[in-house]
Design a protein around this nucleic acid. Structure first.
Lengths: 216, 216
DNA sequence: TTGCATTTGTTACCTTTTTCACAAAATCGA
DNA sequence: TCGATTTTGTGAAAAAGGTAACAAATGCAA
């Protein structure tokens, strides 16, 4: 099929498939069908096949997919065969927590540096990582080969920080500030807005339960 | 219109609209049209009108929406006229960071308690909040009137923790463990999977730039 | 009061995403 | 080799989501 425009929903699912395959591989399973994968991990088998078909023909009819092979393919497709170096801007509690978040540390992501504007924090050591002056961001980012930036500053500073990141030539940014940001065409920006998620839970709680006691 | 099944995409946008309205209100603006709202905050005016129409007719033709009125309506719809009390399970760095995340503290959400299984952490005070033994979750949750739970434990413990939360009668759960969870029909579960977001950035970085230097 | 300008609420259309269904391909046992 | 079985890859259908367009309602100026 080899579609040239891959939806983000598809790539997000690739991460999930990869996780499932790692689990199966550690159990020693050699092959798996899309149907088994779907049943076991509560997915849809047609969707799995279609998502994979965007990138090639990895399966064998009548057999399924070779677990290790597919895992390697997905690892490659997701770029997880390369290491990434992360810079976190904002050395508050959230930034500090992210600095040794196992998702960063355990995988192909290494937190290389923290940045802050507060002179009280600059120079501090948080876990393995040093806090630098955000004014030197571009210089340190180059020196430390940072290719992923994380914004963990208050909302009002997020847009200028994003521009700083952009000027330093970094193309992948994760934003935790609860505000929409405008990024250049060539920069991939992912915003994780905890406020929206919380308010979505609040909305759910505000809905009256249906008569039978079930929610819609 | 008053649709009975409201999509989560719609309620997420209500949060955004509310944020915009708060900004406009603080500037002293009395009315706003969907078109102004859309242009200023990079939204689509038809979508704003359609989202709002799910809940009633809040606008006046030829005038637009009364900023304060609409803000109050959205606040009510999102259940933000009630306080929520949050319990965080997992008093590691992430749990601790969330405990005084301004998104929780500054709004209608109060972090009432932290929970952990590590005897070394139980009894500790993190910011304003005490760390309780997770074995006493149900009891403390009732005593502290907790109605929102946050899962901030390693992936392998997330499902049993969710069941604990569920048994305590809590209906709204935010999950930070990088694993899909199975929740009962009557429980609203929001998973924030940083691993998927990170890997999505990695995928983007792995794509070759297009010949003209732009990304697709 | 009338006509013009504005802006909503809603319908119709279009796009994207998901699910269904099945021909084509591969394995395996006899 | 052949027929039965499995399972992929994919086209077609369905569902969900987003955008455009416009009649109906409102305000305002003359």
């Amino acid at each position: 099929m080899k579609a040239d425009k891959i939806s983000e929903l598809t790539t997000n699912r690739l991460s999930i498939y990869l996780r499932c395959l790692n689990e199966l591989a550690s159990e020693g399973r050699k092959t798996v069908s899309s149907d088994i994968l779907a049943k076991r991990f509560h997915l849809n088998s047609a969707q799995i096949r279609k998502d994979l078909a965007c990138f090639g023909e990895f399966g064998v009819r009548g057999v399924g997919y070779y677990v290790e092979n597919l895992r390697d393919q997905l690892t490659r497709i997701l770029g997880l065969d390369h290491h990434h170096r992360v810079g976190i801007i904002g050395a508050g509690r959230l930034g500090a927590a992210l600095a040794d978040y196992y998702g960063f540390t355990q995988t192909n992501f290494t937190v290389a540096a923290l940045f802050d504007a507060d002179p009280g924090k600059i120079g501090e050591q948080i876990g393995e990582v040093k806090v630098y002056d955000v004014a030197n961001f571009s210089k340190i980012a180059k020196k430390e080969s940072i290719d992923v930036a994380v914004i963990a500053v208050p909302a009002q500073f997020a847009q200028p920080v994003l521009e700083l990141i952009s000027k330093a030539g970094i193309k992948a940014v994760m934003n935790f500030a609860p505000t929409p940001l405008l990024a250049g065409e060539d920069v991939k920006l992912k915003t994780i807005d905890l406020t929206i998620s919380l308010e979505s839970l609040s909305y759910f709680l505000a809905q009256p339960a249906l008569p039978n006691g079930q929610q819609k």
